[in-house]
């Protein structure tokens, strides 16, 4: 079998004395949308941070590893990981508030792999989110929550990644905006980009996911096709215990 695009292999990670992830193993195949769901405190964001090199892995006998395109990326600095083709839309969007929409987008294209294609990337992002084109001269802090989320997605796309990580893109958005974000993720994927989506809202994430993992107290407890998991009583069990 071909190597998965991303392979997270028995990863333990945490913050200081607090261990959050316990032997997390998951894979993302090229072309997939994979969701990581679970209630708050389950460790979803920590998985994203581990992939990006923002939290170190704990050493364990037998060895934990994160591989991207077959190569080890654990131990690399976040900027090196981004250069290899992984981009993130962080929780809460985290756009640069005092920069314009255009400058925020151009920040995404600073990595070498994306510089030559900047103009074309910009056209593609504006085509996907016409609202960003309309507001390109505005400071990012003047945007609504949904527009910031679009901007964060656009900024990530500007780096021409092969894998896009999204952390809770629906958080705090009204339903019509959530729909727009879902459609954007689907479209991005249909253009060939692989997506790992961290999301608490299962009605958002599961219908568009090829596969999904359920994280509970830092452990993967379930894996299945996205739509199948939506019907599963185990998901409610994991979130609510009944």
């Amino acid at each position: 079998m071909a190597e998965p695009l991303l392979a997270v292999d028995t990863v333990d990670a945490g913050y200081g004395a607090l261990q959050v992830l316990w032997g997390v193993t998951l894979r993302v195949e090229a072309g997939e949308i994979v969701s990581l769901i679970g209630s708050n405190g389950a460790g979803k964001t920590t998985v994203i941070k581990a992939i990006l090199g923002l939290v170190p892995l704990r050493r364990r006998p037998g060895g934990a590893a994160i591989r991207f395109k077959g190569e080890r990326i654990d131990g690399l600095a976040p900027e090196q990981i981004v250069r290899r083709g992984i981009a993130v839309v962080p929780e809460g969007a985290r756009v640069f508030p005092e920069m314009t929409v255009l400058d925020n987008l151009r920040m995404g294209a600073l990595v070498e792999r994306a510089r030559a294609g900047e103009a074309q990337s910009l056209d593609e992002v504006y085509a996907m989110f016409p609202r960003l084109a309309e507001r390109r001269r505005q400071l990012a802090r003047t945007l609504s929550g949904g527009e910031r989320q679009m901007l964060a997605i656009g900024r990530a796309l500007m780096s021409r990644p092969e894998l896009l990580l999204l952390d809770e893109p629906s958080l705090g958005l009204q339903p019509s905006l959530v729909r727009a974000i879902i459609e954007a993720i689907r479209e991005i994927n249909q253009r060939g980009l692989t997506v790992l989506l961290v999301e608490q809202n299962v009605h958002f994430s599961l219908p568009i996911s090829h596969r999904a993992y359920v994280l509970e107290q830092g452990r993967v407890v379930l894996e299945d096709a996205g739509p199948a998991l939506l019907e599963s009583p185990h998901v409610r069990l994991s979130y609510l215990g009944v």
């Binding site: 209630s39 629906s170 339903p175 959530v178 729909r179 879902i182 608490q200 809202n201 299962v202 009605h203 958002f204 998901v235 409610r236 979130y239 609510l240 009944v242």
Partner: peptide, 14 residues
Amino acid sequence: RDPAVVKAYLGEAY
């Protein structure tokens, strides 16, 4: 098992 609670945790259908 309260539907309002399930919705608060698992999210709303769109």
